[in-house]
Design a protein around this nucleic acid. Structure first.
Length: 491
RNA sequence: CGGGGUGUAGCGCAGUUGGUAGCGCGCUACGUUCGGGACGUAGAGGCCGCAAGUUCGAGUCUUGUCACCCCGACCA
């Protein structure tokens, strides 16, 4: 079995790149920092999109679309917001090219300079709040519960496929509410939606919590997040939901008349997840043989591979297989029957294994005689010979089983990599030699948080919801602390 | 923007003291194969990143330049 995937143990980031490449998910593009999402990668994103979109609609949201370009002046209306994003903005300054008067090619026409530069959206709060201003006059117009599926651009200095690219796909929800309580509830509810999606679709356990002021979204009053652990023990923020207070309403002058006929600023939230989730999916479940997909997000859930050497054999196999495929499809299971005779079956076994297909069924002449099939599961690599009778039922159960097993496995891994540290030496020792999350005391100041980050490269991932109050002493300063928070090195 | 590295066939690479271009994979055709990435035979495929220089002669040496990758800085 010739595998050319670098082992996780040897070089984790090389392993990650190998999987992205060999499972045919994405590649670097000609444009620096940008990524081409290939059909297999995009098919997984579509499954994520569909599941999330349904969840948003089930919670009362609707989709809309706002412009790609944001006038520069909009971005600077909210002071903290522009501070957070200014360093990574792509800026449109001209609108026309002309033939190069000096020779070949085209050049930017200096006559075609824009009066006001346009920013390619790094996020859409500003353009959306400028729009909401016209939508909202009365408490009867509230709440506004919009989501947008879009691309955004953040000019990152260093990029990694899926995890951090200059352009990425995401959804961003932007809501407006009459009261603070309602907006906070919305931000919390959407975090629950994300956690639900991560755990039930991605089979990815997450810790729900709140960010410290240092790690907060630029322009938010509170940032909630879900944090997941990758197989190298590093943290990955899988989704965020922000309570924006009245910051954007004030910056864009969005007021409404309440029932008492008084003008008030509206309360806002925003929340998003991106194609980064694909990075999380890869790093959470995959092994040294390639990608491992949870059945609920697999574009192909079951692949059936006939083992044959001529048309006659294939025909005999198909007679047994086609009714099985029909039964599986009736049960909404995504099946591929790969009858391609230009590839040998051994080649196909590897191909679908690298691509993460959860269940593989192989049927050859030998199986036909015995009315059986070889069924292999991707998560454990176990193979078993099963009767053809009621195989569709067995496979449906197996898919459920794989979905749950992946979650259990990821949960067990995570829980065994969360450790408490009570001293600075313990803290560093865990990060350097054991990896994972560290629960430790922190004195609550941004200065200490910065210092810990500088010395250890670990950041506070979140203060978990319902965190037990267990007084102690800050690992760095020794000052009193009310509770432990979660530290980790992060992507 | 620092530090390091790489540019040679679609992909991955080799190329010695300078002498005129190679390997593996893939691709095409035919045959044998077909239960974990088959094998044989015959082919197709190159401005050696780009530009100057040294030389009778440069993939190889010199200078410049461009691009990409890795490690930092940055990362709501």
């Amino acid at each position: 079995m010739a595998k050319n995937i670098t082992s996780r143990e040897d070089n984790y980031s090389q392993w990650y790149n190998d999987i992205v490449k060999q499972a045919d998910l994405a590649e670097n593009s000609a444009v620096r920092g940008c990524m081409v999402i290939k059909p297999h990668g995009y098919a997984i994103w579509e499954k994520m999109h569909d599941a999330l979109d349904k969840m948003f609609k089930d919670t009362g949201h609707v989709n809309a679309y706002f412009p790609l370009f944001i006038p520069k002046s909009f971005l600077s209306r909210e002071a903290a917001h522009v501070d957070g994003f200014a360093k990574e903005c792509a800026v449109v300054t001209h609108y026309r090219l002309i033939n190069n008067p000096q020779g070949k090619g085209v050049v930017v026409d200096p006559e075609a300079k824009l009066e006001e530069e346009l920013i390619v959206r790094p996020t859409s709060e500003t353009i959306i709040w400028d729009t909401y201003k016209n939508w909202i006059q009365s408490y009867r117009d509230l709440p506004v519960l919009c989501n947008q599926w879009a691309n955004v651009v953040r000019w990152e200095m260093r990029t990694r496929l899926f995890l951090r690219t200059a352009e990425f796909l995401w959804q961003e929800g932007h809501t407006a509410h009459a009261t603070r309580e309602e907006a906070v509830a919305e931000a919390e509810r959407m975090l629950e939606v994300y956690a639900d999606f991560a755990e039930n679709y991605m089979a990815l356990p997450v810790i729900k919590g709140i960010k410290t002021p240092n790690e907060r979204f630029a322009g938010a009053e509170d940032t909630f997040c879900i944090e997941a652990m990758m197989q190298d023990g590093k943290a990955l923020q899988a989704g965020t939901s922000h309570f924006l207070g009245q910051n954007f309403a004030k910056a864009f002058d969005v007021k409404f008349l309440n029932k008492e006929n008084q003008l008030e600023y509206v309360w806002a939230t925003s929340w998003g997840v991106s194609t980064r989730l694909l990075g999380a999916l890869i790093m959470a479940h995959s092994d040294d043989n390639g990608l491992v997909l949870p059945p609920k997000l697999a574009p192909i859930q079951v692949v059936i591979i006939p083992v044959f050497k001529d048309e006659i054999q294939l025909k005999a196999i198909s007679e047994q297989v086609l009714p099985l495929i029909q039964k599986l499809r009736d049960n909404h299971i995504l099946v591929k029957y790969d009858t391609d005779d230009s590839k040998r079956s051994g080649w196909k076994f590897n191909e679908y294994e690298v691509k993460g297909v959860p269940v593989r069924v192989a049927i050859g002449p030998r199986d036909l005689e015995n009315k059986q099939a070889e069924v292999a599961r991707r998560d454990t690599l176990e193979k078993s010979i099963l009767p053809l009778e009621n195989l569709d039922q067995t496979i449906a159960q197996l898919l459920d089983n794989i979905q749950q097993n992946l979650y259990r496995k990821a949960l067990a891994f995570r829980d065994s990599h969360i450790r408490e540290a009570n001293t600075w030496d313990e803290f560093i020792d865990i990060l350097d030699h054991q990896s994972g999350f560290v629960q430790a005391h922190w004195d609550g100041t941004p200065e200490t948080e910065d210092m810990i980050k500088e010395k250890s490269k670990a950041t506070i991932r979140c203060i978990p919801f319902q965190n037990p109050l267990t007084p102690g002493k800050c690992i760095l300063t020794g000052k009193p602390s009310k509770q432990r928070v979660i530290f980790a090195r992060a992507y």
